[in-house]
Nucleic acid binder design. Structure first.
Lengths: 333, 333
DNA sequence: CTGTTAGCGCATTCAG
DNA sequence: CTGAATGCGCTAACAG
């Protein structure tokens, strides 16, 4: 591996000068600059960014922690982050937290020891206190998909209560009264918030919330399938279901079809997230749009502006969901 | 940030000793070890892995380059890689190549300058020569989803010709003769191979390959939709379609439905990849299974064994696809 | 078993 | 505008 030293010798200058042309900061004569660049070319020199980081105390990389690398949700988020950061020549070190506190903590440890310049965290298991503490430290941290009042300026989140409300309200608007709900894991704040929105819409409409019209899923397809099965058994007469994400909705559709129920004629269904595949389900799934890619981009912008002093047009921290109506809801008369 | 020096002073030992207990390599008295660990605790010491890397010339991180962070294909691949690597306490630095030669080259540059201990590459645009050269270098490189004869031992790939063959053969077996094909971008080797398999199956069955029964897509949903439109216009009497991936298949299904064709009664369809969502399409999509997660894991194993000397049960470089038959193919009489 | 001595490759003073 | 010197935080011989 060729080093700065060899370059400086070939170019007949000092190492400091080579360093200068690399960080094209200081004024260097065009002539010496040319000489140095020529030498770099000739030797196939690649700066050792590890050494750069150590010397400059800046790694030009930001740590990203997501729950999973798999699934329709995190892909767009990571893509949004990577795209913006890359344009600014910053780099992404990625880790998965698997919704487990131990894994999340270990990942954060790792990213810190990696001397990331900033952290973008989508964490679910770690406590508020821990995060508040972390944000008080010197390392810039931005939280995705989580809102903590004490550190609200470090949080980019979606108003999930409104999302759940909108979904349920639409069902009510279409005349449904017997509306089931397949929630996400209730210990997850977003799952809970969506459920709160569901209850709120029901309350406002004067429809009592029935415990046995609600089942808890885990955000995966299978749990939607199973949950729908239970629901149908207890309430064969239900006419609509709000699923807390699109994956569970696809599982629920599968179950409904197995039982010979037509969608949306007999049972209406609405999802949440607006994942890419929602459009290709049959019937095309009505859902709540979650601007996850935009939020990833915004997190990157936040970092770029706070850490790397890039000027950003605007910083938006709270996003609003909106309905995407397709073919999975029918009017109930 | 507390350093090794402060720890050594608090513990009353030399820095070297602190280093020793961290790499719990050499023999250290239980007593001094305890003292050091106590000091580390008390100071909240976190090793600076940047400095570790520079000094040890080993970064404990492996660079991963994928085409996109988004979409149903790369998620499982990254998840497979990350999972295995993490268990060995190695870390993942990720970059996206966007199927563009410039981006791919830049990403590789970046990963190298990051002093990754190894590279796992899913590249599409970069040339064989470049890769052969890269593999000849001292940095261990494993290629995913690409087979280059000269460096076959650096390639983990799927036999896509067989996959395309299997898909088409199944259609023929079910009595179809007028079988269309929506290919991926023909400059991509896997798209081409799948198409070769299609042609081969047709040839063997004595069915002429008709140019206008073939349209080129781009692996995204929309192109499947559009492609299906063209096909239907030119050949209203086609009875089956082989789509080069599941996303295009979902688009094609959408188009067929728009035109009022029933699936599979009027038109049979088969996809490729066996993405998660394929099961939840309607009808459930028959497809060719692509063990992408396994292949990601295998890449990680390769790295673990070649670079970090972990003993791995077995190393498999060429994977075989297999059919997953569901509900999207009907018998043609 | 432990301390001492050198760097790793680069950025960054400070002179000149 | 350029060079020499110093150190980032840690590992790796080499003695003892």
């Amino acid at each position: 591996m060729v080093t700065i030293k060899e370059v400086s010798e070939l170019a007949g200058v000092s190492q400091a000068t080579v360093s200068r042309v690399m960080n094209n900061s200081d004024k260097v004569t065009d002539k010496t600059r040319a000489a140095v660049e020529h030498a770099m070319q000739q030797l196939g020199y690649r700066p050792n960014s590890i050494a750069q980081s150590l010397a400059s105390n800046r790694s030009n990389s930001v740590g990203v922690l997501v729950s999973e690398l798999i699934g329709p949700f995190y892909g767009p988020m990571m893509a949004g982050i990577e795209h913006e950061l890359r344009q600014a020549h910053k780099h992404v070190i990625i880790a998965a937290g698997h919704s487990s506190e131990a894994d999340e903590l270990e990942s954060i440890e790792f990213l810190i020891s990696r001397r990331c310049d900033a952290l973008i965290l989508h964490v679910e298991a770690v406590s508020d206190e821990y995060l508040i503490n972390l944000c008080r430290g010197s390392l810039p941290v931005i939280l995705l998909n989580r809102h903590i009042e004490e550190i609200a300026d470090h949080c980019i989140s979606l108003n999930n209560k409104i999302g759940g409300y909108l979904a349920t309200y639409e069902l009510i608007l279409q005349g449904h009264r017997k509306i089931a709900c397949i929630t996400g894991p209730m210990w997850k704040i977003d799952a809970k918030d969506r459920f709160v929105g569901y209850q709120q819409a029901l309350n406002e409409a004067g429809i009592p919330v029935q415990q046995d019209l609600v089942v808890e899923g885990d955000f995966n397809e299978l749990s939607g399938n199973v949950g729908m099965g239970k629901l149908l058994q207890q309430h064969p007469d239900l006419t609509a279901v709000f699923c807390s994400n699109d994956q569970m909705a696809s599982g629920a559709i599968d179950q409904l079809r197995q039982q010979g129920r037509s969608i949306p004629e007999q049972v209406s269904i609405i999802g949440y997230d607006d994942a890419t595949f929602a459009y290709y389900l049959y019937p095309k799934l009505s859902t709540v749009h979650y601007p996850v890619k935009d939020m990833g981009e915004m997190a990157a912008h936040w970092v770029l502006s706070k850490v790397y002093q890039l000027k950003i047009r605007s910083l938006k921290l709270v996003f609003e969901p909106y309905l995407v109506l397709r073919d999975s809801i029918a009017t109930q008369s």
